[in-house]
Amino acid sequence: MVACSVGEQHFLKGGIAQELRTDGRKRLTYRHTYVETGVIPQANGSARVRIGGTDVIASVKAEIGRPSSLQPDKGKVAVFIDCSPTAEPTFGGRGGEELSSELALALQRCLLGGKSGAGAGINLSSLLIKEGRVCWDLYIDGLVISSDGNLLDALSAAIKAALTNTALPKVQVSAEVADDEQPEIDISDEEYQQFDTSSVPIIVTLTKVGEHYIVDATEEEESQMSLAVSISVNRAGHICGLTKRGGSGLDQSVILDMISVAKHVSETLMNKLDSKISAAEACEDES
């Protein structure tokens, strides 16, 4: 938790009111964002995203699993977030658990849609190998290395980049098998198939500080926030999820206003992120 004196608080809020934040940004400008992919060789896909002082890593690990009996035609995805004590000493021990589970839940909602699997950012059917028998289990792990606010946006961007980086090996399933037996599978070492991430949403968090709301709040700004609304938007401009933090209430018209602003912001952010991801992928191929 960052400390902020009364004088600094006034300065910070005044800056937001005047459209000039402490690092020279406007209210709806993101900090400089850097993307690196393929940072963890053991994972099927991984990415590291830095937004200003916030630094996160996401990795995707795929395992062969069995679809649940309720949804035999879909694969499974699980999201876990870990807040490293290097980011903040209070994250040590069990201190970061609350934040970790809150972030994981928000991401799960935004990426996986409802219980029925409707509205999912990740196409779960594409993870199926043989109906009711074999499917891919994706384990998405996020790690917060250094925290300077806006963790949710950074994590969603990292997950999108990691999924783009993910290559799943081609799997051959032996055709004839008895009903109650697990079929034999053959995982190819050479043939890989890229994961389709065009529909994976990104999250834009609007943080209300004083009278105005801003995107990409730093930790100092977050310490002064009254509430924050995280809106996940996909490439088509559709809202995939919405979560709100913070105690104070919001007027209905303000929420609608925020959604349209988030949509607008996400468009430029998505384009920037896509070009950065493809540049990072090209860079990785070179080295």
């Binding site: 006034h10 005047q18 000039l20 020279g24």
Partner: peptide, 17 residues
């Protein structure tokens, strides 16, 4: 009038950066 004038604020931010 706790608001810093915009020009001063720009200078502060520029020096900060």
């Amino acid at each position: 009038q706790s608001h810093t004038p915009l020009e001063t604020r720009q200078n502060i931010c520029r020096i900060g950066n």
